[in-house]
């Protein structure tokens, strides 16, 4: 007889019923919380960051000054702070060592790639007069590489 917790999908690990997923999926509560936090906290902050960046690029004559500039800078740095906090919470809550390892590996790849890209571009700016890269874009590089790394790891261990 099946464990009633498993049947109703409320056990520590449950299949992805009611989530609109075609594929059978087993995930942990920590993973569901991680996905929810990422979707409802980190993604909106990145959208706000992109909107501020877009506004600053197109309306550069309306650049904020003084305290407003500091507020804008803090708002633009919030997404990466939220991202790291969400990763930290997940690592603290997740009991599955393999899944933790995947996250750490993906973060390591994205950190390494971000450092490599920014160092390379910094040298290009210094020695080859390459166009200046907006430092605020670094967090986007980190996130893009992280998403790619996560997808590659997901494919490797599918």
């Amino acid at each position: 007889m099946k464990n009633p917790l498993e049947v109703h999908g409320v056990g520590p690990y449950r299949e992805g019923q009611g989530k609109g997923m075609k594929e059978r999926r087993v995930s942990s509560p920590a993973n569901y919380r991680f996905e929810d936090r990422f979707l409802f906290v980190v993604v909106p902050l990145f959208m706000l960051d992109a909107a501020l960046g877009f506004f600053g690029f197109h309306y550069h004559h309306l650049q904020p000054v003084g305290a407003l500039a500091i507020v804008c800078a803090v708002l633009q740095s919030l997404p990466i702070v939220a991202c790291i906090v969400v990763f930290g919470l997940y690592l603290g809550e997740e009991k599955d060592e393999f899944q933790k390892g995947i996250l750490v590996q993906s973060m390591l790849w994205s950190t390494g790639a971000t450092l490599a890209v920014t160092t390379f571009w910094g040298s290009m700016e210094k020695y080859s007069q390459a166009p200046r890269m907006d430092v605020a874009l670094v967090q986007f590089v980190f996130c893009i590489v992280y998403i790619v790394a996560l997808a590659v790891n997901g494919w490797r261990y599918r």
Partner: peptide, 12 residues
């Protein structure tokens, strides 16, 4: 995976 309380990827 459900019985072990880990992900299917972990079992694989």
């Amino acid at each position: 995976a459900v019985k072990l309380e880990v992900s299917r990827q972990s079992v694989n």
